[in-house]
Write a protein that binds this DNA or RNA. Structure first.
Lengths: 137, 137
DNA sequence: TTTATAATTGCAACTGGTTGCACCAACAAT
DNA sequence: ATTGTTGGTGCAACCAGTTGCAATTATAAA
C-alpha cells in the first residue's frame, strides 16, 4: 500500500509539506539523515518549519512508510520498499549493500534457546568494510 | 589494566572530576545514560560543568574504559569489565541479561561469505522480551 | 619546593531536535 | 453557505549535547 493511501485511510491529511518530504525520501533512494532531509526541504520550500519536518518523519515511521535505523552515532531514514532487508554500509567508501532478511535468524534462535529472550532484528544498518575496500587495505 | 593507569600512561590527568565520574560508573554496575551520569555527578558535586562530563565520557570511551552502546533511541554507558559480552534488556521489566559474546558469529560469517562484508558486533545492547515477561503477556 | 607546560575545566554560545500552544485549513453535518 | 470538529503548521521556548576559548590545574623536571 502506498504512503498516500495509508495516510488517507487513517484520516490523516496529505499536505504539501508531507508530499514534499515523501518525495525527497523516495527520490533519494538511499539513506538520509534527518538533517539532510531538512536541508533538501528548505532548498525547495524555505518556509517549512523544522518541527513540521521532524514531526512528519516521526509520523511516517509510525505508519511504516519509512524506516528509521541507527548507524553509528546517528539515525538515518529510508523508504520502506516491498520486502524487508538489512543494509550493509561500508565505512570506507560509503557504499550501501542490501542484505538478506534472514541473516539474524540464527541469533534470534540462539537468544531464545539460551536465555528465553525474544528479540527481533528489523531493517538493521551495519557498518563495516566491503570486499573491495578490505582488499585495498 | 585499570582506568587510572591507562590515563597516566597516556599522559592524561586524573582530576577530581574524572575520578568522580569513574566512581559513579563503577558503582552503578548497570547501564547509565549520559544524563543519569550527569545527574549523579551534580548530586555529589554541583559545580561540575556538563561539558566536562560529556567530554570525560567521550574520553573514557576512546580509552576503552567504558563502553557506549545504543539502546533504542539513546546511548548508554557501562563499565568495560574483563570479558566482553552483550546485553539483553527486557523492554517490559527493564532487566538486563548478560549474553555470550559469540552469538553474532554466525551473522559475521554469513555476511562475509555472502557479501564479502566484514562486520563486527561488539558489546551490543538488544531490546526484547525476557522469558518471564513473555509468559505473563 | 618552585617552575614550566600541556592537559583540563568552566563558560557562553551554539546545534540538532522536541514540545506546548495558538492559529489555520480541510471537511462533514446542518 | 455556515458551523463544528479534527488534524496540521508555525512559532517560540526549551532540552540534551557540542564547541571555541580563556583561565586554571595536575604533573614532571629542575
Amino acid at each position: 500500500m502506498s504512503c498516500t493511501t495509508t495516510l488517507k485511510n487513517k484520516g490523516l491529511k496529505l499536505t504539501p509539506q508531507r508530499r514534499l518530504i515523501l518525495n525527497i525520501i523516495h527520490e533519494s533512494g538511499g539513506h538520509l539523515t534527518a538533517e539532510e532531509i531538512l536541508d533538501y526541504v528548505h532548498a525547495r520550500v524555505p518556509g517549512v518549519n523544522k518541527s513540521t519536518v521532524y514531526r512528519t518523519l516521526e509520523l511516517l515511521e509510525e505508519l511504516g512508510c519509512v524506516y528509521k535505523s541507527e548507524l553509528g552515532d546517528r539515525f538515518i531514514y529510508h523508504h520502506a520498499e516491498e520486502g524487508h532487508h538489512h543494509h550493509l554500509v561500508c565505512r570506507a567508501c560509503g557504499k550501501s549493500i542490501d542484505c538478506d532478511e534472514d541473516v539474524f535468524l540464527p541469533v534470534e534462535r540462539a537468544l531464545d534457546k539460551k536465555y528465553g529472550f525474544q528479540a527481533h532484528f528489523k531493517h538493521m544498518v551495519m557498518s563495516g568494510l566491503c570486499a573491495e575496500c578490505r582488499d585495498k587495505g
